[in-house]
Design a protein around this nucleic acid. Structure first.
Length: 708
RNA sequence: CGCGAGAUAGAGCAGCGGUAGCUCGUCGGGCUCAUAACCCGAAGGUCGGAGGUUCGAUCCCUCCUCUCGCAACCA
């Protein structure tokens, strides 16, 4: 969309169940903030909304973990996250929260409109219910044995050991984590958003209209989902934390968090409008509004498939682009909250920005590096060494140094004032430098319009690089040696010096404008040095050579950035590894406790007697094709030989176990695994390290012997 | 299994039919106004592997390997 009347920019709503790390920052908030600062410098009509996402099952789970209430959790994390953003210069027009009444009303109204128009479907189904807790169970609240790898503490949505996506129905021996009881199936009904009805719309809109202006990764993901066939998706759930479904007969049901969260963008806009005496409607309803969602790749389906369908049904505008970023790794490994391998915004703020030798310039240092390695086309990696290199050799040595030497030389050779210029004395070098200034505006602009932040930032640094080269070639410090008999610089030399310094100073002012969207604190600091007001930073001033008037006296030089020392880098890397170790120990302790605590519910002797255990001997073993963990075994039981498929391939090689005696459950119902029917189950004991051991008679005995 | 994205000098990325470029790093030289810096030069890649199309492929096609990701009551 060219020259839209107004912009509405959103950044993914951070989930308020904990602190956010630099991956989140680099993925959504930093590019969004950069883009918004650029638009605002252009004096466009733009609103930048964000806020905490405060519903969903993970919030009450975190509350249980911290021994408090869901409300306390969101009240704890919302303000910290908001402050973190502020400290890093991420400047939203509003940082709202989905627990706000205005959001509840907005989301309910949204649901009602869709429901009244017949755009939702109601389906009855049977869900697990915990009678003791009197509550339906979300997937995460159900644990059981994984059908894929036999792990006993798999969640209802996913097995954490083998990573397989599960549904609660697939779990063997499901247990409610609320009460520890076995849950029962109970009928319930839910509202669904029938995405399948909108495949044509999505296909035309994304794959045709936006085939060329959306990122490859985004288009690819969308295509994959659309081609795979879309299905109706539940928009309500049985839970007591969230937004009540505003329909009779839906008591005890709330809106599915991903139905309510993106509506948070709308309610945030409403609140912003209220606070500022504006009308929110054009931002969501007028076709001339350009809506852009900044997100990470995990959010593509919600922002490109589900939310657009909702918006279209509700009669709102659609996003013009969704520049999703890939993920950022940290020091060679994926960032992970559970493993404690991460750099939280809070940690960086504590260690760099808040320290006496830190301050906002260190916020800009992080912004610089994160933009420079932004995962725009593929996953990227944050390393502390990389951070140090980028800061020291590019920010400090190239950008900071250029500004500093311009300021220092101007004070030494031009009396601390903006010198006059003599255009008639310009040579090729001067003209090239001027051209570099005027052309970089357009370069940066074009790249920013295409959401290529990494490349745009490079162009800015490149202008500083050009400035350094220009100064080196002109050598004003050499010209200054041409003095008359009184020791005064000769007038011809002084004129050449004046030209050079004048151009360098105008370039410095231009650098401030161009760097402003990326490094706002630095831009302000340059304005301070040049004794100009922030108004100079308006984008239309970029490319101009008359930003500083001749004769204007400037402040003494001050360094823009400081170097990052080796010791700081080593300290951070050590800290990272220590945190990892600490969390490992924690997890092990938790695991150890977990391994002993869940004693299954009591059974009577008759229950036990139902199980027929026999001693068997493994005759042969072979790997099951296309399954990492399965071995196909032929087991001799005295009275017959059976095929048993067992998930032990990661622990034993087939040839190692042939001839071994094992204990087998022989009256277990047959079950197909990878197409092979398994008739029985081998008993295994698992040690603290997760390694499996056979349970077998101490001495070899006859096959078929019973075990009691 | 399948699908999507990626695999190019030590690192990070461009290129997308005519025998590889950029930034940082490394090495050498020059210079000195500047945060032991700046400027110039050099070394370093058989463009993940194997086939194919083509006069010619990093770029197109096929197969393979590896990395990351993949909703459906998962934020």
């Amino acid at each position: 969309m060219k020259n839209p009347k107004r912009y509405l920019i959103t950044a993914a709503l951070p989930y308020a169940n904990g602190l956010k790390h630099i991956g989140h920052l680099a993925g959504a908030y930093l590019p969004a903030d950069t883009y918004v600062r650029y638009l605002k410098a252009q004096k466009r009509d733009v609103v930048f909304v964000c806020g905490s996402d405060e519903h969903g099952t993970a919030i009450p789970i975190q509350a249980t973990k911290e021994g408090t209430t869901a409300q306390a959790i969101i009240d704890k994390y919302h303000p910290i996250i908001a402050q973190n953003f502020k400290d890093l210069g991420i400047e939203f027009d509003i940082y709202h929260r989905t627990s706000a009444p205005i959001h509840h009303e907005t989301a309910q109204e949204f649901f009602k409109v869709l429901n009244d128009n017949g755009d939702l479907e109601i389906k009855a189904s049977e869900q697990y219910f915990d009678e003791a807790a009197n509550s339906f169970l979300a997937d995460r609240y159900i644990k059981g044995t994984c059908p894929n790898c036999a792990y006993e503490s798999a969640y209802g949505d996913q097995c954490e050991r083998c990573g397989k996506t599960l549904s609660p129905d697939e779990l063997i021996n499901p247990v409610s984590t609320l009460s520890g009881n076995k849950p029962v199936k109970k009928a319930t009904q839910h509202w669904y958003l029938p995405l399948d009805r909108h495949e044509k719309f999505l296909s035309d809109w994304i794959l045709k209209e936006h085939a060329n202006d959306w990122r490859n990764t985004v288009i690819g993901q969308c295509k994959s989902w659309i081609d795979g066939g879309l299905q109706a998706r539940a928009v309500t759930r049985d839970l007591d934390w969230g937004i009540q479904v505003p329909v009779a007969g839906a008591e005890g049901k709330v809106l599915y968090v991903w139905f309510d969260a993106p509506i948070g963008y709308i309610s945030a806009t409403k609140q912003w409008a209220l606070d500022n005496g504006k009308d929110w409607k054009p931002y969501w309803q007028d076709k001339e509004t350009k809506l852009v969602h900044f997100i990470g790749k995990d959010n593509i389906v919600f922002h490109c498939i589900i939310f657009p369908v909702m918006l279209q049904l509700h009669g709102d505008i659609l996003p013009d682009n969704v520049p999703a970023n890939e993920f950022m790794n940290l020091e060679g490994d994926k960032m992970s909250t559970s493993r404690n391998w991460k750099l939280e915004m809070q940690d960086y703020i504590d260690d760099f920005i808040n320290k006496e030798n830190g301050g906002p310039q260190l916020a800009d240092a992080l912004r610089y590096y994160l933009t420079q390695i932004a995962p725009e086309t593929k996953d990227s990696e944050f390393t502390w060494k990389g951070f140090q290199d980028a800061n020291n050799s590019e920010l400090v040595n190239i950008f900071g140094n250029f500004v500093n030497r311009a300021m220092v030389l101007m004070h030494k050779l031009c009396n601390g004032k903006v010198p006059p210029i003599y255009p008639e004395l310009f040579d090729a070098l001067d003209n090239e430098a001027i051209k570099a200034i005027t052309s970089s505006k357009e370069k940066v602009e074009t790249l920013l319009e295409q959401y290529k932040f990494r490349d745009a930032l490079f162009e800015v640094i490149d202008l500083a690089r050009t400035g350094n080269q220009y100064m080196q070639k002109k050598e004003p410090w050499i010209l200054a040696k041409q003095v008359d008999e009184n020791g005064k610089i000769k007038i011809e030399a002084q004129r050449l010096i004046d030209n050079c310094m004048h151009i360098c100073l105008q370039m410095t002012a231009n650098l401030a404008i161009l760097i402003n969207p990326f490094l706002p604190f630095t831009a302000k600091k340059i304005c301070h040095l040049l004794k100009v007001v922030d108004k100079m930073l308006e984008w239309e001033n970029a490319g101009k050579l008359k930003l500083l008037s001749v004769g204007y006296s400037l402040r003494p030089p001050e360094l823009l950035f400081r170097k990052i020392e080796d010791s700081e880098v080593t300290y951070q890397i050590e800290k990272l590894h220590k945190a990892l170790e600490a969390s490992k120990t924690n997890n092990e302790e938790e695991k150890a406790v977990a391994a002993f605590v869940p004693v299954k519910s009591e059974i009577v002797f008759d229950d036990f007697a139902k199980i027929d255990l026999r001693v068997g001997k493994i005759l042969s073993a072979e790997k099951v094709e296309k399954a990492d963990k399965l071995l196909k075994l032929e087991v001799f039981l005295g009275f017959e030989t059976r095929t048993i498929v067992s998930g032990i391939a990661l622990h034993f090689k087939p040839e190692e176990i042939v001839g071994k005696q094992v204990t087998v459950v022989v009256n277990l119902a047959a079950r197909k695994m990878r197409g092979i029917e398994s008739n029985g189950m081998i008993l295994m004991a698992e040690d603290a390290n997760g390694k499996l051991h056979f349970v077998n008679p101490e001495d070899a005995i006859g096959e078929g012997a019973t075990v009691n």
